[in-house]
């Protein structure tokens, strides 16, 4: 078991190194624009550009540049400096992290609280009107682009811009430490918007898995023992149905980050996603690299946790 965990951790680290290399390569090899010129600003003399190129080490060979970059990350956790405002990318990401965590954690709570019960109810009453309505709704939620849902929500429900004026402060995020009430009301709409597609996807998965587990022998046994139906469903069937969902959790972290970029852009939340978007608009390469690496780190970490959890939960997995 320990050997397995160690091997998985080592592979995770290797993966992170390869990802960092590829991110670096994409921005070194792909752009036809010159980073030094970007850094120098609009009206720069050729001398200034040459000087900046030297300062940033852009005149060194590719492998040297990569080596310096990786050394900075490993030794000092240094992700470089933004071309836009000279601030350290690490500091920028850290200062924006609370907003993104507020958004992601709330959305996660909403999607679990909505998705799984919907799936269970649909599964125990398959082909009823309720089942058809919720599965139809789920498919619509999966098909809707999240940023568009955000606009519709702002248009309908937000105070100031909306028709119904329900939620004040949507579109102007306030940190939790400043004003908890304002924080909550500014995040309700983004939570539901970001959670919609995930909740719908989990509802569909839960329903399909539940229907399959409900026909297992152990469910018949549980019923034959005389257990109340509620206990059969919640204790026996739901457990069996939820384990496969665990596997996709790692992938969902990546999707959640993508969703956060779009949601933060629409609702004007100053989080890591918004930072990634701003960096891309400003061609701020070190910041883009930093956020991609940061995202990859979480995906790899989540996959690692899932793999280890799975090995603990399922004795059939060899390690």
């Amino acid at each position: 078991m320990t050997a397995y965990v160690v091997r998985r951790v080592l592979w995770g680290v290797a993966l992170l190194l390869i990802v960092s290399f590829l991110t670096f390569a994409i921005f070194y090899l792909f752009p036809s624009a010159d980073p030094a010129a970007l850094r120098a600003g609009r009206s720069a003399t050729p001398q200034l550009i040459a000087q900046i190129r030297h300062q940033l080490g852009l005149d060194k060979p590719f492998y040297d540049q990569y080596w310096i970059y990786v050394k900075g990350i490993v030794l000092h956790f240094d992700l470089g400096f933004s071309y836009q405002n000279d601030e350290a990318v690490r500091t920028q990401i850290r200062s924006r992290l609370p907003a993104t965590i507020s958004l992601a954690a709330g959305a996660f709570a909403v999607w679990i609280a909505v998705g799984i019960p919907t799936g269970v109810i649909s599964a125990i009453r398959p082909r009823t009107l309720l089942d058809r309505l919720s599965m139809g709704g789920a498919l619509v939620a999966i098909s809707a682009p999240v940023y568009w849902l955000g606009l519709v929500a702002l248009f309908l429900f937000a105070k100031g811009t909306g028709k119904l004026q329900w939620f004040g402060g949507a579109g102007s995020y306030v940190p939790l430490t400043e004003d908890p009430g304002q924080w909550l009301s500014s995040l309700v709409l983004p939570w539901f918007v970001l959670a919609a597609a995930f909740a719908a996807f989990y509802a569909r998965m839960t329903r399909a898995n539940m229907i399959e587990t409900m026909s297992e022998d152990y469910i018949r046994t549980a019923r034959a023992k005389g257990l109340p139906e509620r206990r059969v469903i919640l204790r026996h069937a739901l457990r069996g149905a939820l384990t496969p969902i665990l596997t996709i959790a790692g992938l969902d972290i990546g999707l959640l980050l993508g969703g956060a970029v779009l949601t933060e852009t629409v609702f004007n939340i100053p989080g890591v996603g918004r930072f990634a978007y701003d960096s891309i608009i400003n061609s701020d390469l070190p910041s883009i690299q930093g956020t991609v690496l940061f995202g990859a780190f979480f995906i790899i970490l989540a996959n690692l946790v899932v793999d280890v959890l799975y090995a603990v939960l399922d004795p059939r997995i060899r390690y």
Binding site: V19, V261, I288, A296
Partner: peptide, 25 residues
């Protein structure tokens, strides 16, 4: 390795690298 990337961010990265100037590669 590809699946370890945040999908939208990777696409955004490729997109932004290729949207500068005359394109990429």
């Amino acid at each position: 390795v590809t699946l370890a990337f945040p999908i939208l961010l990777l696409a955004l990265g490729i997109g932004s690298a290729c949207s500068l100037g005359k394109g990429c590669a």
